[in-house]
Structures are given as C-alpha cells and as structure tokens.
Amino acid sequence: MSRTAPDARPYATPVVGRYVHDMDAPAHSMLGLAPLTEALAERGVDLAGLLAGTGISPEAMSDPQARISHRQKIALFGNVLRLTPEPAIGLIAGRRQRLSDFGVFGYAVMSSATLADAIAFGIRHVRLAGPVLEKSFRVEGDTAIFEARDVMALGALLPLATEFWFSSIQVLTEHVLGREFRGRQLLLPYPAPSYAARYEDFLHCPVAFDADVMQWQFDASMLGMPLPNANPITADVCASFCSRMLEELTEEPALVRSIKEACLNSMSDLPRAEQMAERLQLSPRTLHRRLVDAGTSYQAIIDGLRERLAIEFLERTDLSVDEIAERSGFSDVSNFRKAFKKWTGQTPAYYRDSPPGSRTSCRSPPPSRGRSQRPG
C-alpha cells in the first residue's frame, strides 16, 4: 500500500474492512473495552455483574492479548445496556479511548503521513481491533464518508454499539490529528434517544436520526492533512507487516490465527503459553497438543512474529536496535540481540549492515501440517 498522500479519487470505490463471521470464534481484542468498564465502575456497576453470563474473565478486561467472540461481545453490550444508570454511557466511554494501546496497528495509524493514510489503514485492518459493525470508507465529491452496517441485527443494542464506536473514532481521530476534529453531519438509522442533544457535545457535528443509512461525513479536503507524528517509513513497515499477516492468517488453522491476531495487537507485552491458553479458554495441555497437530508450537509462533517484525524494521527503517527490540516485544535489548543471533546467525547491527545476499537465517523450515513438533 502506498503511503503517498492520496487525492479523493482512489476512494470513490469504498475501502471495506474484513471480518470474521463465525459468531463463536475468538475474533475480538479486549483493547478499547476497558474505558467502557471503567466508566461503568465509576457509576457503581461492578465488574462481576457486568461480565455475568458472558464467559469473559475479569482479568481479560485489562489484558491486551485476550480474545472474545462476537457472541461474547454482544452479551457484554447487553449487560451494559441493562445495568448502566447512565443512558449515554457509550458516548462517555468512547471519549476515553487511547490509540497507543493498539500495538503494531497503533504504530501504523499514528505514524501515517496523512489522515487519508491513517483512515485507509484503519479500515483495511479493522479486524485487528475487533469490530461489531461492518465498516467502510469512501469519498463522494468533496465529502468523505465513514459508513457502518449492522450485519448482526443488534436490535436494541444498536444505539449503544454505534455511540461507543463513533465516540471512540472521534477521540482517536483527534489523537491522530493532534487537534479537534469536526464532521459535517452524522446520519443514524434509529430514532432519537432521550439524550439526543448530547450527541453533538461528544461528536462535534450535527446529527440526524431515523436515516436510511449510518454515515459520518466530513470535509474531504482534510484527507491530505499532514499528521504531527508522521513517519512514513515506520508506517509502511507496520502496514506491510499487518497486511501480510492478515493475508497469511486466512490460510492457517483457526487456533494459530487467533494467537497471531492477539499478539499483533500488542507486541510489547506478549503472554506466556499458559496465559494465552487461559485467554482462549483452553488448558495449556490442550493448547500445546492442538498446536502440535497444526505442525507448530507456541514459541515458534511468537519467535516467528518477532523475527519477521525485527527484520522489517532493520531492513527498512533507521530505528535504533533498542527501539526495534521494544517494538518486537522485548523488554531487554540484550535478550533481543541473543534471540536475533539465534534466529539468523547474525547480530542485529551486522544484519542491518550486510548486503542482502549475505543475510542468512538459522530458522528451520516449518514442518508440514500434521507432523509432530515438540511444544516450545
């Protein structure tokens, strides 16, 4: 994907996010949900009651690698709607979002050259952030349009899910821009709630209810606006890495796919195998056995992600080895150097300075699917 600032024409055809349609697959990150539980806790709603009947553990709510299914997320929203004393809780909680929690995905969005780049990446890779509504983006004339569709028939939960998403997008866009963001109008396909006047306070644009579509419209001239944290090289590395990972995940077993998607959300704090097993609601023994059946191991998955991301940064950016270590999931740079030497037979500095043809890797080819491999 080009990171050059685009004009409006490439977006005449909508950019559409890709989704997992299995209602019970662990497809959703917990990232972004903590502001919702925190806002409810401040209003006297305890976490145990909020999670009742969802199958989500209290520990998962603050865990960036934890994964839940569409069905679990919808159950959580149902509890929010039932328990909250504040009808505008979705708008309020959305304003508390932090883009910096989103790992490689967050690095790519924040370091994009322009708002158009950030939006295009966010929509194409929205699956990494755990969507409920199906989202797309396009430009018509001088109007840029975010559009969402309720593909899950959320019913009474639609206003809550919509408010939480649009409020989150509003504040995250302001983080990316480093300034206030004002849209032209917001069109929503449901009746105005009793607190409808508060929408404009949170979303900074006129709102029309009972519309035929769900759209957030803004001035397309903003798309070419340079971003304050722009680093096109870093953005390109992160975007390319995420794109390839998502493409490869479609060909991999569901368990391997779930682990990789969870890790992509927060490379800086990767879980142990036992922790991942708990997040996926498996025993450690079952996790290892199923990975062996898939022809891999938990450690091989983690090492593969770290190695590939480190090589991307070494080959394509001027980031220091310390910075690359952090972005590759290492808290100690000496451990990163040892691991990189084990993977490639070379130190990070030597690898970066070597001609491409002389670079080697000590990693053995992965076994074919179905062959046994000792768990890492």
Rank of each mutant, 00 (worst) to 15 (best):
M1H: 09
M1T: 11
M1A: 09
M1F: 09
S2D: 13
S2E: 14
R3H: 13
R3D: 08
R9L: 12
P10W: 05
P14W: 08
G17Y: 03
M23K: 09
A25K: 01
P26M: 08
H28W: 14
H28N: 10
H28E: 13
A34H: 14
A41M: 06
E42T: 10
D46W: 04
L47V: 15
L47T: 13
G49M: 07
G53I: 03
I56R: 01
S57E: 13
A60M: 15
P64F: 01
Q65A: 12
Q72S: 03
Q72C: 03
L76W: 07
R82I: 06
R82Q: 14
P85L: 07
I92H: 11
I92Q: 08
G94S: 01
R95H: 13
R95E: 14
R96H: 11
Q97H: 13
R98W: 05
L99G: 06
S100G: 04
D101P: 01
F102D: 06
G103R: 00
G106Q: 07
G106I: 03
Y107V: 12
A108N: 00
S111T: 15
T114Y: 00
T114C: 04
L115M: 11
A116K: 01
F121D: 02
R124S: 13
V126F: 14
R127I: 15
S136V: 02
R138D: 12
D142C: 05
T143F: 04
D150H: 01
M152S: 10
A153W: 04
G155D: 08
L157Y: 00
L158D: 00
L160D: 03
A161H: 01
T162D: 12
E163T: 04
S168A: 12
Q170F: 07
T173C: 07
T173Q: 08
H175I: 08
R179I: 02
P191E: 04
P193A: 05
Y199H: 08
H204N: 11
A208E: 13
V213A: 14
V213H: 09
Q217C: 14
F218G: 02
F218K: 02
M222D: 11
P226E: 11
A230S: 12
A235S: 15
D236C: 06
D236T: 11
A239F: 03
C242E: 13
L255E: 07
V256S: 06
S258M: 09
E261L: 15
A262I: 07
S266W: 03
S268A: 14
D269S: 15
L270N: 01
P271L: 07
Q275N: 14
E278A: 15
E278K: 14
L282D: 01
S283D: 10
T286W: 05
T286M: 15
L287D: 02
D293K: 14
Q299C: 00
I302T: 08
D303Y: 12
L305V: 13
L309C: 12
A310E: 09
I311F: 06
F313D: 10
R316M: 03
T317A: 11
D318R: 11
D322C: 04
I324N: 01
S331G: 11
F336N: 02
K338Y: 12
T344N: 10
T347Q: 09
Y350M: 09
Y351C: 06
R352Y: 03
D353Q: 12
S358A: 11
R359S: 03
C362M: 10
R363I: 12
S364V: 10
S364P: 11
S364Y: 08
P365I: 03
P366I: 03
R369W: 09
R371E: 15
Q373I: 12
G376S: 05
